[in-house]
Structure formats: structure tokens, C-alpha cells
Amino acid sequence: MPYMLPHLENGWQVDQAILSEDDRVVVIRFGHDWDPTCMRMDEVLYRIAEKVQRFAVIYLVDITEVPCFNQMYELYDPCTVMFF
């Protein structure tokens, strides 16, 4: 079911997701959709998404498709969750 969390497909969408939220925390999982660690994290994030929707919004970013943040955020681990 993690596929139901929204994916950000490019750097512009990531920037817009962060900049457009004034009242909620933006949670972004950076990693590979196929990675087992990310799959487990995605399941956890999916389970809490509805519970936290009033104060947080959750997105997924595949770092192969959107590599522009890899160096900036030092994304070297298989799965990274960041809060903005």
C-alpha cells in the first residue's frame, strides 16, 4: 500500500512541496522505491499518514529519478526521512 503516498517527480516539485506548506510539517522520504529499507519505511509512513494529516504531509522521492538533492542533503544512506 505504500504506493498510495504521493511521489515528487522532480526538484521543482520537492521545492514547491516544502515552500507551499505554512502550517504543516513536510516529511519527505528520500531513497529508492525498490529498496527493502525504504519499503518498510514507506509502510510505516503510510500507516501514520491519515493520523498526522492535520499537522504533517508526507511525500516520497526516489533519489535515482530526482538526484539533485543527493549531494546537497548528503543522501548516502539507503533511506532518509527529512522534516521541513
Rank of each mutant, 00 (worst) to 15 (best):
D23L: 05
P36C: 14
N10V: 11
W12V: 13
V26W: 14
M41Y: 01
A17Q: 03
L75I: 15
C79K: 08
F83H: 09
V61D: 13
W12M: 12
E43R: 01
V26G: 09
N70A: 01
V44I: 12
M39F: 10
Y59E: 04
F55H: 14
L8N: 02
V81C: 12
A49Y: 06
V25H: 14
Y73T: 04
F69E: 03
A49T: 04
T80Y: 08
P2F: 09
Y46V: 06
E65W: 01
H32I: 00
E50W: 11
C68N: 09
P67V: 04
E9G: 08
F69N: 04
E74I: 09
M41Q: 01
F83T: 06
H32P: 00
I28A: 07
R29I: 07
D62C: 00
E21Q: 14
V52P: 07
V14H: 09
F55Y: 10
Q53V: 11
V61G: 09
V26K: 12
K51Y: 11
A56E: 04
V61P: 12
Y73K: 05
V52W: 08
E65C: 02
Y73R: 04
M82F: 08
P6M: 04
Y73F: 09
R40Q: 06
R54S: 08
C38G: 03
D22M: 04
Y46M: 12
I28P: 02
S20D: 12
V81W: 13
T37I: 12
D77G: 04
L5S: 10
L5H: 12
D42T: 10
E65Y: 03
R40P: 01
M1I: 13
K51A: 12
I58L: 05
L45G: 02
L60Y: 09
Y76K: 03
N10E: 11
A49E: 10
I28H: 08
L19M: 09
F30W: 07
V25G: 03
S20W: 12
P67D: 09
G11P: 02
I63Q: 09
V27M: 08
S20I: 10
V25C: 10
E9D: 13
V57D: 03
R24D: 00
G11N: 06
M41A: 00
L75D: 11
W12K: 15
E50C: 08
Q71E: 11
L60Q: 13
P6L: 01
V81T: 14
R24M: 05
D33Y: 08
L60K: 14
D15E: 15
W34A: 06
M72G: 05
M1H: 13
V44Q: 15
Q16R: 15
Q71R: 05
T80W: 08
F84E: 07
S20K: 15
V52G: 11
